[in-house]
Amino acid sequence: MRFLLAAALLAGPAGAGEIWVTNELDDTISVIDTDTLEVIRTIQTGQRPRGITFANDGSVVYVCASDSNTVQVIDPDSGEVLHNLPSGDDPEQFVLHPDNRHLYIANEDDAITTVVDVESRTVVAQIDVGIEPEGMAVSPDGRIAITTSETTNMAHWIDTESRTLFANTLVDSRPRHAEFARGGAELWVSAEIGGTVSVFDVETQAELAKLEFEITGIHPDRVQPVGFEFTADESTVFVALGPANHVAVVNAATYEVEDYILVGRRVWHMAFNEDGSQLFTTNGVSGDVTVIDVASREPLRSIPVGRFPWGAALRPEAD
């Protein structure tokens, strides 16, 4: 009966999007239906799942099972682990290269960035970076990968051709997340303890701007930027502010903060639905996901998920 039910769900209405959320302390993924805003499946993973990303065509989903020291490759239809990738120790975040073949993985406990070929399932390179590597990004043209290191307080610039570092830029304390913007002309990096987001010019690696946040009634020490996401047109950035329990809305052109949205407790990461009208944030301490209406910048609903939700990814629609 249970199997039947699952099969029925799988054959659900075409076009219903799914947000996949990793629950760090439950060893599960909660799958949220973007229409009904309900959890429709719970999938078992390895220990301490954090970073999550889908293959470009949606055929598989990659999950960092940090305490299992592996990246798991999961069939999104069956929810079954197809195989594990050699990831190096304690993988936390990763990014899939535009070639859809190479994963760049931050090994938090080892001060290494590991490059894995997902087809041959082999490690093709390990690059020494700073201590506690965390944030990972790759430029749209695939030429540059970025690792941020939380304890060394730097963004490390990796030439993906030679797989060596070509620059290291100092950022504020405990850098967490990195994203390229403006077609790869800018690099944005959040600093959790520094309380800032730095914007770098990719050509020169010079700092263009540093964003600060201020929320009435919340001490600046609690304003701790972690994950952030750009809208599809790159005009707006949503920045998770951790234990400030808010998401900041930033104008990506002027670098000005336009709004703060109240979400759940200790907000980590986020993902948009398919048309970009809704944003799903993972709230670690409150164990839920806040759905934000992007146009009105209002929270719509809280969805209970597993314990300590961390990563979030939109499942690409099957062609």
Partner: peptide
């Protein structure tokens, strides 16, 4: 600001 791994600078 020093990151002391106790949740606040």
């Amino acid at each position: 600001a020093l990151d002391g791994f106790k949740g606040r600078p």
